[in-house]
């Protein structure tokens, strides 16, 4: 499975998924009046929402990459592009060193099944008309992974047990379960096709706090047992700190900082990361006041000039307002996009 030709097959394992200048825009179709104006040769401006703006990121075999950002910053869109649910507007996505767009036949099927997604809302992610057993058996039947019904049933039971559910639940409907149980069913559905890579889109955000820890532990367990690779999307840094090896901080469609988790929490570089970290409540900083990040996240329809974070940044200079910072490497593994680090 490893690509021998891959350049950096050194100490770090090769990237499973590699994004190069990946972008995604959303726009609307011109309405009739605008189309008529267009025919008359008039310039029409239809707003374009840049959900993801030029993301370079790779996920390595066996790691957990945390992706953190405020809501609306494009994290979910990025995750969806990795699984193939959303297609990129520009840029390239490589799976095992091959562009996803060039995959076909068996290779495309492998990509589809290898990269699975865990959804945020356990109440919407299961088909309410299917019994749990059918939800889990369907991928096996569709892709003819199992050869007989008895084998299918065996696999379904195994999957249920693996996520900590009773096998008798296979004859029940999703609405009979609690949020945490449903999320487990969703995880079992993803696992049953034996994926290598899981994109977890805020998988615990919709769960009760008492259930969150259980589900996180389930993710950690599964990782150990199955050598899974994760992209773990969250808006909660304290969750990511617990689970991730590396953390990418996303702001308005761009990755502004990327570092190993320990380093990011010890020495955050980007002003945005620092503000986010100050928000985490802990026993030690109990007495401190919480400073909310100033202002609102800007509209992705009209991103600010220069550095997207400058309207909210305490260190913003004229340069930040005029010129977008390029990512630069502070260490081999720590990358940040901020003008503050240009000359040190």
């Amino acid at each position: 499975m490893m690509n021998a030709l891959h350049a950096d097959a050194g100490p770090t394992p090769p990237p499973v998924l590699e994004m190069r200048a990946l972008e995604r825009e959303f726009t609307r179709k011109p309405v009739l009046a605008e189309r008529l104006l267009g025919l008359l040769g008039r310039q029409i401006d239809i707003p374009v929402l840049k959900a993801v703006r030029s993301v370079d990121l790779s996920v390595h075999e066996g790691e957990v990459l945390g992706l953190v950002g405020e809501s609306g910053c494009g994290k979910s869109t990025l995750g969806r592009m990795l699984t193939g649910i959303t297609s990129p507007s520009r840029g390239e996505l490589d799976y095992n060193g091959k562009p996803v767009t060039e995959l076909s036949g068996q290779a495309l099927r492998d990509f589809t099944l290898d990269v699975q997604m865990i959804f945020q809302d356990p109440y919407a992610s299961l088909n309410p008309r299917q019994k749990v057993g059918d939800i889990l058996a369907e991928p096996l039947r569709v892709h003819r992974i199992t050869r007989s019904e008895t084998e299918t049933r065996k696999r379904v039971d195994e999957a249920l047990r693996e996520v900590g559910l009773d096998v008798s639940y296979r004859d029940r409907y999703p609405h009979q379960f609690s949020g945490g149980q449903r999320q487990r069913i969703g995880i079992a559905r993803a696992l049953i096709v034996e994926p290598r890579f899981l994109v977890c889109d805020e998988p615990i955000a919709a769960l009760d706090v008492s259930i969150q820890a259980q589900v996180i532990n389930l993710f950690l367990d599964l990782r150990r047992r199955r050598n899974l690779t994760y992209l773990f999307i969250s808006h909660d840094l304290s969750v990511v700190r617990h689970i991730a090896d590396r953390v990418a901080i996303m702001y308005l469609g761009q990755i502004v900082e990327l570092a190993p988790a320990a380093r990011l929490f010890a020495e955050p570089a980007h002003p945005y990361t620092r503000t986010l970290l100050e928000q985490i409540p802990s026993v030690r900083n109990r007495k401190r006041k919480f400073h909310a990040v100033k202002g609102e996240i800007p509209s992705p329809l009209k991103p600010p000039s220069g550095c997207a974070f400058h309207p909210r940044c305490a260190f913003a200079t004229d340069r930040c307002r005029a010129e977008a910072p390029l990512p630069r490497d502070l260490t081999e593994t720590h990358r940040v996009s901020c003008h503050l680090f240009d000359n040190n």
Partner: peptide, 10 residues
């Protein structure tokens, strides 16, 4: 999301 999940499962 269950429709997305279905497409995602190929």
């Amino acid at each position: 999301e269950y429709v997305e999940a279905a497409f995602n499962l190929g």
